[in-house]
Amino acid sequence: MNLFSDWTWFHRLGSPRWFYQNSGRWLPWLSVVTLVVLATGLVWGLAFAPADAKQGNSFRIIYIHVPASFLALAGYYIMAIAGAVGLIWKMKLSYMVMKSAAPIGAVLTFIALFTGAVWGKPTWGTYWVWDARITSMLILLFLYAGVMALQYAYHSVDAASKAGAILALVGTVNIPIIYKSVDWWYTLHQPATIKLTSAPSMHPDMFQPLLVMIAGFYLFYALVLILQTRNEILRRERNTSWVRELAAAKMTTNTIANEAKSE
């Protein structure tokens, strides 16, 4: 109950300084765990999982394609929610999270599109089809590009943050509509020659590494988002005394280490 009556935890969470200092403590652990999970999933999926009966070994692309698609879409919602929190509670930190989430999501969307195209060649005989899911993914990439371009277009940090948040929210309202309409459009025009069957029910031996990869991608996303947000904090708070002291402390420890090395 105390959690809800007392809002100090919420404000502390919104403090860039608090976030920066605490995330610094978690980062080494998070990066080690991410690396281990991703490496496990990669080796398992590439070398140990059995090949698909119909698609052969090309199906192994699923181990990066599906997690990347998951995170590409989830990333947009994370970005939009961060923007909404910024607009409602005027929380500086959440605008920084929003700005950092955009390029990460765009790269993951690109990965999903690229791996999908490469996977399409051996399975359907072509790199690109105007399939509903592929088209929606492409539109998602455009939506990310819009938010990023808007962030870079404004000189004023405040205007850029608010404009980006509004655009992200408008996009969020639109994503289900876009997905449904593209789906409907595809069933209308579905070419007879190419038949995309939905993923066959996967054997547990194939499915387990996929779960590991999805977990790994989520961890990776969190890790990169924290790294980018920390940079954004330094960029926006560079004139505060705590950032200056931090920079000074970091530099002196570095120079001491260098001198020790040279001796």
Binding site: L42, G56, F114
Partner: peptide, 27 residues
């Protein structure tokens, strides 16, 4: 990869490169 090596390895290589860039650039 049973003849699909080019596709599988190029997809994984590009993905790993992009993800490495995502992680290393902010550091």
């Amino acid at each position: 990869m049973g003849g699909h090596g080019v596709y599988v390895w190029s997809a994984f290589a590009v993905t790993v490169a992009a993800m490495l860039w995502l992680a290393v650039a902010p550091v």
